[in-house]
Design a protein around this nucleic acid. Structure first.
Length: 214
DNA sequence: TAGTAGCG
DNA sequence: GAAC
């Protein structure tokens, strides 16, 4: 068994790599505040389906909050301080977002985390996100903090080339995945979400992905 | 290659 | 899962 992917369970966390881990249930105490924050963000910056540079409509519905928002269109991927749909700045971080992101990062070995962007993803049943790298940030060392809410999903965590072997990580409501440093540029994705009904979110999975763009 | 179609 |  490879020690990189050995997935050693230590209490309520599972190692996916030297600087990548799953914090099981870490966001549960924050869930109510996070969901309220999501509602507020989406009221100002509605979910939308972005188009990839290849011209395909993404299955995941997205929005953003924070200083920068991740955007995609036929011209490429980028971070924009404004919502292209409204020409207005993205909503500020709800306070609970920053608290959770900082505490989760610290628990995973990244103290002093100060994200400046948060991508909101909504996965309806059947929705997937194909394997990719987060490579549009200037800072490629600061961790990604990914929070799962609602319906469960299977996270794919791979290597540094698309074709590398992937590990399947079951993620439930309240789980947080943190990867940075040497593991920051690993490919990752999400398998199609199975239909279901979750008390917190209804018929969908919600994901918050924090990044440090600058 | 933040995706799909199409074949084994 | 490989090819595009």
């Amino acid at each position: 068994m490879s020690d990189l992917f050995a997935a050693q369970v230590q209490g309520r966390s599972t190692a996916l790599g030297p600087q990548a881990r799953v914090l099981h249930g870490f966001a549960l105490p924050f869930a109510e505040a996070l969901l309220a924050g999501i509602d507020a963000v989406l009221a100002a910056a509605p979910l939308r389906h972005l188009v990839t540079p290849g011209g395909h409509v993404m299955q995941v519905a997205m929005s953003n909050c924070g200083r920068f928002g991740w955007c995609s269109d036929r011209r490429g991927y980028r971070y924009d301080p404004n919502d292209p749909q409204t020409a207005r700045p993205w909503p500020a971080f709800p306070p609970a977002f920053l608290a959770l992101a900082g505490e989760a990062a610290e628990a995973a070995g990244f103290p002093g985390y100060r994200p400046d962007a948060c991508l909101l993803n909504r996965y309806a049943p059947g929705t997937r996100l194909s394997l990719h790298q987060d490579r549009d940030e200037d800072d490629r060392v600061a961790p990604i903090v990914s929070v799962s809410l609602g319906l469960p999903a299977t996270f794919l965590f791979g290597g540094f080339a698309r074709g590398d072997k992937t590990v399947r990580v079951p993620l439930m409501h309240g789980d947080v995945v943190v990867w940075g440093g040497a593991d920051r540029m690993r490919f990752h994705g999400v398998l199609p979400v199975s239909p279901g009904l979750h008390p917190a979110t209804g018929e969908c999975r919600l994901n918050l992905t924090f990044r440090k763009v600058r």
